[in-house]
Design a protein around this nucleic acid. Structure first.
Lengths: 326, 326
DNA sequence: TTGTAAGCGTTATCAA
DNA sequence: TTGATAACGCTTACAA
């Protein structure tokens, strides 16, 4: 409500002097500075961000974007992002929409970290530039101003499946995520490659395309139960779907892991609580890293080589070890 | 990067005409409108929010503020807020800091929903006004421009404790949250009142002041185990602490609920998965409601009567029914 | 050390 | 139906 003009009038100086005081310029007398600050306090003056941004084009604010409210581990990513930014003097705003495009301009924010799949790659490519670097999570974009931070899906999934084979499992089912996402493709490829390498066949009827939500795991389980033979292990492309499947099995008297083993991917809070065998993604750390890379790029340290974060397996109770002697 | 000026030049019209087209004014010829829109598409024109805000002072954007990344159910609140806002033509930005004060001005956002306890009441009172309504969650502020949306803590906690007494529990422990928060005070008062009403004494040595985090529940459990007598039921002021306590008990060979019953408050995802008896707070709904009240206040429908959301009890496996015949 | 004035990108008013 | 122009609140040369 109250602007610099009013402050200037009350302090008996010009607006530029007020501006200079507020921006800690040295070209202002100590006595004048005091007087101006006093008036600011009295009037409860709050600078109007719009005016400032419009003129200066500097913001020291980073935009984070996500949209899936079902994934509670997103909070951990945000936590990592926030901690790094805070330590480095940047503010964070979060947007859950494509309305965030509005803020993705050097005038309002200095860069973005994008998690939402709904933000189209072509849009990001258009927005990113010399003065507006972007970090994307969970997808790879080849662009001089966009850095990709992705989880290494292939190796841990391969290792997980190999572990399942080693533990005696032979008949596998797979519940996938959206088929157009790179991480889902990698997870399935690792799954499939590992079975092939072990000379184990995979029946297409045991493949289900889900959407990473709990409900689609439940649906997959229901469909599986319709057939008169279950696989002995259901590998899911993420935890939510694994949990949906487990709940459905249990509600229908099918025991996990005795009747069917189930594995996930993510290691969300629930996974630990339910004893789900899964691949653990270090979420806080990848948020932190994403923020670090973004700031480094903003500061001119150009580096857009895709970064792969490693993940590791948590063997828990939803899988049995069926090897002899155990 | 590309502004109205450039669009105007390319379309062979003036900036005001461009503005009129973009704001759907009727005073522009259909043919001109088409031409302008075409150029906008070609140049990928994005309006500069700062410029618009500066001039119009209208933003149709709401600010949401939180800071505790451990509480995964916050995502549900945000989900509710987002859904309501979206349906009503408002955008949402989220801030996890007191840096959000920067955005809390009618020029940048139209109102705020505040969840973070770190935002001081006096600050909110200063910011709120005729043209900037605020909704606060989980605290009550008496101010003509601030609406409070709080959970009804007392009744369900009283009912929970009465249920525990009915089930045969007599020796209670209590793990509280921060003692200066209203909701913790209410939860403890309900607990305490109910015991008194049932003629059951409460030993101060079974009271622990926590901070709503899992770790403080674990600490309380550890301290309890040092004494040579456990209460037979540990009532916790939220789920996180209850979960911390349960994990600690189990790691130390104390069985829940056989050796000690445990209850929580919140009904977070984990609570359901772990079978924790708790009070279920409808988080999505309270986010939705908070957003609704805010928009109503923005639209001039003044209503700052504090609103209490009711919660209900989920009896699950961390409590036994010790009544005869069960 | 301080003030004047131009300009940031937009919208609104008013004249053409 | 269109276009000049002023104004929004601020920063920043540059002049005093």
């Amino acid at each position: 409500m109250v602007g610099m003009k009013e402050v200037a009038k009350r302090a008996g100086v010009s607006v530029s002097t007020v501006s200079n005081v507020l921006n800690n310029k040295k070209n202002v007398g100590p006595e004048t500075r005091e007087r101006v600050l006093k008036v600011c306090r009295e009037l409860n003056y709050q600078p109007n961000a719009a005016g400032r941004l419009l003129k200066s084009g500097r913001s020291d604010t980073i935009l984070f974007n996500f949209s899936d409210f079902d994934r509670s581990f997103y909070l951990k990513i945000i936590n990592g992002v926030y901690d790094y930014l805070k330590d480095n003097g940047y503010d964070l705003i979060i947007c859950t929409d494509k309305s965030c495009e509005k803020y993705m301009t050097g005038k309002l924010t200095s860069g973005s970290i994008i998690l939402d799949r709904k933000m189209k790659t072509e849009t990001l490519v258009r927005i990113a530039g010399e003065h507006y670097p972007i970090v994307v999570l969970d997808r790879i974009i080849d662009n001089p101003y966009i850095k990709s931070v992705v989880v290494n899906n292939y190796e841990p999934m391969y290792e997980l499946v190999q572990g399942l084979v080693d533990r005696g499992y032979r008949r596998f089912g797979f519940v996938g995520g959206p088929e157009d996402t790179a991480d889902n493709q990698e997870r399935f490829k690792a799954f499939s490659d590992c079975l092939t390498a072990n000379g184990i066949g995979f029946q297409q009827k045991f493949y289900f395309a889900g959407n990473y939500r709990e409900k689609s795991g439940a649906t997959a389980a229901k469909i599986l139960m319709l057939s008169n033979e279950l696989p002995d292990c259901l590998v899911c492309a993420n935890d939510n779907m694994a949990i949906g499947a487990i709940k459905t099995f249990m509600q229908n008297g099918i025991r996990v892991p005795e009747d069917i083993a189930v594995t996930g991917f993510d290691d969300c809070d629930l996974a630990e609580a339910m004893g789900l065998t899964t691949v653990s993604i270090p979420n806080y750390e990848r948020g932190y890293l994403a923020a670090r890379y973004l700031i480094e790029n903003i500061r001119g340290q150009r580096n857009v080589e895709p970064f792969k974060i490693s993940a590791n397996i948590k063997w828990r109770e939803t899988v049995l070890d069926k090897r002899a002697g155990r």
